[in-house]
Simulated scan of single mutants.
Amino acid sequence: MVCDHDMVISLEKPGTDGLDEAVDALREWQSEGVAWQLHPGDLGWFQRSGTEATAAAVRIWRRDGRILAIGLLDGADLLRLTTAPDVRHDEDLARRLTEDVIAPERGVLPSGKVSVEAPEDALIQDLLPGHGWRTDEPWTPLRRDLTEPVKAPDLRIETIGPDKGHVWAGVIRASFDGSTFTAGKWHAMTAGAPYTDARCLVGYDGQGEAVAAVAVWSAGPGKPGVLEPMGVHRDHRGHGYGRALTVAAAAALQELGSSSAGVNTPSSNVAAVATYESGGFQRLPEVRDLTRDA
């Protein structure tokens, strides 16, 4: 634990025992109309690397015992950061976050080129540029409202259980260049606390081939859910399977009680943005990471 006794706010690594507390806080913070940056599903997807690796990648900031902010080191050079909605403009928290992010010795981000994702309305967005940070490439958030019934797609969809984790893993591996996703990683992912509110879906073509896969993550009834990841097998693209699975994902989140379905994709990935829009998702204003070049 890193703690400056001259300050009220402390920074800590939660350990495996503290992961559930972080997930619970992230669930609590999700609501419609609040800028979303880190979702319980993000920790759930990271859980594919195992509980110990996930705990090692999480950072928690507290004041008087209350969790104010949570960060996920999504790789060595990217911190995905969010705060409780009511402290987005808390000056003490913003200063502490900035100090911890810019100083490699604090154990949040290393030296060299690194990036931070933070809510657009968080005060840290105003402070980091004063320390040499700049905006990076844009991302496009998309959202589908789930208050109206979602019509099932014309594609056979299966909810995957432990006996077919290898099928889901195989489609994801064939959907992303360089992916090393395995059945073992699927089992590690689904063993984590966030998967309590999640589902893995696979779409099959008319010949019974698994052609697309998606994971959906709820944050609880009445709260926004997310898709992470969604992929179409490289040998089965161009047939509308991505659109169909996107609709199926929205329907699954609706069954889980989610108020909306959300996804983020690089704006440069025009095909992905178009796929989500064809599945009833609406494009929201672009967001950008903050990056330090050295």
Rank of each mutant, 00 (worst) to 15 (best):
E52G: 04
P221G: 05
A183N: 13
T135L: 08
A188K: 14
G165K: 07
L79T: 10
A118F: 12
V8W: 00
K164C: 04
T246K: 02
F176K: 09
G225T: 04
P162D: 13
E158H: 10
G71Q: 10
A169E: 12
W29D: 01
Q47K: 05
Q282D: 11
D197C: 02
R106Y: 00
K113G: 13
E286W: 05
E148C: 02
D17A: 14
V167W: 10
A248V: 10
R173A: 15
E21N: 02
L72T: 03
P194F: 05
V216H: 07
P221M: 01
E52W: 02
G161Y: 04
L73R: 14
W139N: 08
G279D: 06
D74S: 14
M230D: 01
Q30T: 09
H131N: 14
I70V: 15
A212K: 04
L227A: 04
A198M: 08
D4Y: 01
T190I: 10
A250I: 08
A25D: 09
A215E: 10
T265K: 07
N264D: 14
L256F: 08
P40C: 07
A76L: 10
R80S: 12
G231P: 05
A169N: 12
P119N: 08
G208Q: 10
D17W: 00
F46G: 00
I60S: 00
L109Q: 06
F181I: 09
S267G: 11
A250E: 12
V273H: 01
V34M: 05
A219Q: 05
G33V: 03
V116Y: 10
C200M: 08
V287T: 09
V287S: 03
L146K: 09
Y204G: 00
A193L: 09
A272M: 12
E91C: 02
G220V: 13
T51E: 14
G203S: 10
R292P: 00
D92E: 15
R27L: 02
P141A: 07
K13V: 03
D86C: 04
S111G: 15
D289M: 07
A174N: 14
K223F: 05
G240H: 11
S10Q: 07
L127D: 08
H187L: 12
V116L: 12
Y204Q: 09
V287R: 04
R27V: 03
P141Y: 11
A248E: 08
A244K: 14
K185P: 00
L97F: 08
R95I: 11
K185I: 03
L26Q: 08
D77A: 11
V2W: 00
L19V: 15
D293S: 09
I172E: 06
R88E: 06
T98G: 12
A198L: 12
F46N: 03
R48W: 02
V211H: 02
P129R: 01
A25C: 11
P229E: 12
A210E: 03
G279P: 02
R95W: 07
F181Q: 04
H236R: 13
V150G: 03
T196A: 15
V2C: 01
V167Q: 09
D20Q: 12
D126C: 05
V150K: 01
D42L: 04
V211L: 09
Q282V: 13
A219I: 06
K151F: 03
G279Q: 07
H236S: 11
L127F: 14
P224R: 04
I102A: 11
